[in-house]
């Protein structure tokens, strides 16, 4: 279970401080596909980056399986439980697909034969067996994102954090990636936290959702409930039920 307890984060600047997260509370249950939706600049990426340990928080706790991970400096053990997929893929451009997927296993000192077996398993899972020796530059956006997903799953994490993973993809590829994520979730019983600004994605894959606005949670609940009975103006706007 992932709990976000009273988390706040302010970016200091000379002109004006930016309160990116203001007392956020969230409970993400095991095997949830949890969507965090909001407009640009709402704080959703900061929240995900804070969970991933890429941002420090000013206040509060991020509790992963009863362990407050927000204050832990050496996160190597924590990263064995968390896989992150980024909007921009963030692949190693000078390494081929095999070595990109193998990277987390190499840095976690897996044996060569285990790495080899796991990479092949993952390539079958994401449907890229024919691209094993291809370099990222030669892949399409959807294929790059599949490699990034395979890489994030390499060391069998329990939690998968997805940062706007389909925002650079066309609708057909987006559908394929969502279907892949759903099947991975069902097969491996992962907990997925997904950041997006598209309500369509939330409705098609997430069982629970939180709507974030100006660093605060506007509403949270089961996706169906939030979709059918939105309580905030922003949710209605995101659903297209309210005009700008």
């Amino acid at each position: 279970m992932l709990q976000i307890i009273n988390v706040s984060k302010t970016f200091q600047s000379l002109d004006d401080d930016l309160h990116a997260l203001c007392s956020i509370y969230l409970n993400i249950e095991e095997e949830d596909i949890f969507g965090i939706i909001g407009l640009s600049g709402a704080g959703k990426s900061t929240l995900l980056r804070s969970i991933a340990g890429l941002e420090t928080i000013d206040q509060g706790q991020i509790v992963l399986d009863n362990l407050d991970i927000s204050q832990i400096k050496n996160r190597k053990q924590i990263y064995k439980n968390i896989g992150v997929v980024f909007q921009g893929y963030n692949l190693l451009m000078q390494r081929n697909v095999y070595h990109n997927i193998a990277f987390p296993m190499v840095v976690n000192h897996w044996k060569k034969e285990d790495i080899n077996r796991r990479v092949h398993e993952l390539l079958v899972m994401v449907g890229l067996t024919d691209k094993i020796y291809a370099y990222p530059q030669t892949l399409s956006g959807g294929q790059k994102q599949r490699v990034a997903i395979a890489r994030a799953l390499a060391i069998n994490p329990k939690y998968l954090l997805l940062d706007e993973v389909t925002s650079a993809l066309d609708p057909v590829t987006t559908k394929q990636i969502l279907s892949l994520l759903k099947s991975i979730h069902d097969q491996y019983h992962l907990t997925i936290v997904m950041i997006t600004h598209e309500m369509g994605l939330v409705s098609s894959i997430c069982n629970r959702v939180a709507v974030i606005n100006q660093g605060m949670i506007e509403e949270t609940g089961k996706t169906d409930d939030v979709m059918t009975h939105p309580t905030s103006d922003l949710t209605r706007l995101l659903l297209g039920k309210e005009k700008l």
Binding site: A52, G53, G88, N90, M93, V107
Partner: peptide, 14 residues
């Protein structure tokens, strides 16, 4: 790209 380094950090790279 800073993102590539962040991805490596998230995979447990020292």
């Amino acid at each position: 790209d800073r993102g590539v380094v962040e991805a490596a950090i998230c995979m447990g790279a020292s």
